[in-house]
């Protein structure tokens, strides 16, 4: 995947470039907003990662101009400011996701993955499958090996999120954002507790655990 990074802090830029390079991505790094704008207009990238504060032209303005110029590549904004207003502004400007520095590389990697595989918005999925689990989004029914598993609404949403991204890691932060609509870290074990409930319902009767946990990274259900 071709990724453009615009980041003026050499340390962060290096850290991200190295990490994404190791994952096999083709990474270009610039440190000025104007360079980012020109490059993104001239060449086709699969993903743009911009720092919000850039010398020359700030990240937010670059995103706005790219969107006006019909550049549709997904944009991930990075910011050193954890302000609530910044996130809203960033998303309003046309960014697709938003990450507050400092972040764990695994968090960035998970989001890069999710952004690059974002399905076209017009396709509507009504059923999700993975490792013997079947989820019907219309009847809100979940079966494992044909047997109905009754789930609480949150557990259903958690499983849906994992199934939609089967094969990828979904981080704790992403689950908080998508299942609870919390863009802050409540510093409680709500994700862990609800995953554990979901797990024990799915595994009832001694079935193998379909949810893989990697400490400090997130959760994953393997794709078929």
């Amino acid at each position: 995947m071709r990724i453009l990074i615009a980041e003026d802090d050499a340390d962060t830029a290096g850290f991200v470039e190295r990490g994404l390079g190791e994952l096999g991505h083709n990474v270009t790094v610039v440190d000025k907003g104007t360079d980012a704008l020109h490059l993104a207009l001239a060449e086709a990238f699969d993903l743009l990662i911009f720092d919000r504060m850039l010398p020359g032209l700030d990240g937010l303005s670059v995103v706005r101009r790219l969107r006006t110029a019909d550049v549709a590549a997904p944009v991930l904004l990075l910011t050193a400011l954890g302000k609530i207003e910044d996130r809203v502004e960033g998303l309003d400007a046309g960014a697709d996701d938003y990450l507050v520095k400092p972040f764990a590389f695994s968090e960035l990697a998970a989001r890069v993955n999710a952004l690059s595989r974002r399905p076209p918005p017009q396709t509507t999925v009504t059923r999700l499958f993975a490792v013997g689990i079947e989820m019907n989004l219309l009847s809100r029914e979940v079966r494992r090996d044909g047997k109905i598993i009754p789930l609480q609404p949150r557990e259903f949403q958690l499983l849906e999120e994992l199934l939609r991204h089967a094969g990828e890691f979904v981080t704790r932060t992403m689950l908080l954002e998508r299942v609870w609509d919390f863009h802050f870290d409540p510093q409680t074990k709500i994700v862990e507790t609800h995953i554990s409930r979901l797990r024990s319902k799915l595994n009832e009767g001694g079935l193998p655990d379909p949810i893989e946990t990697v400490r400090g990274v997130g959760y994953r259900i393997p794709a078929e």
């Binding site: 802090d9 340390d11 962060t12 850290f15 050193a80 520095k101 400092p102 764990a104 590389f105 400090g216």
Partner: peptide, 15 residues
């Protein structure tokens, strides 16, 4: 936060 973030990133690389 910035130097601490760098420290955290280095630790993560070490991880």
């Amino acid at each position: 936060r910035t130097p601490l973030a760098r420290l955290r990133n280095q630790l993560e690389t070490l991880q």
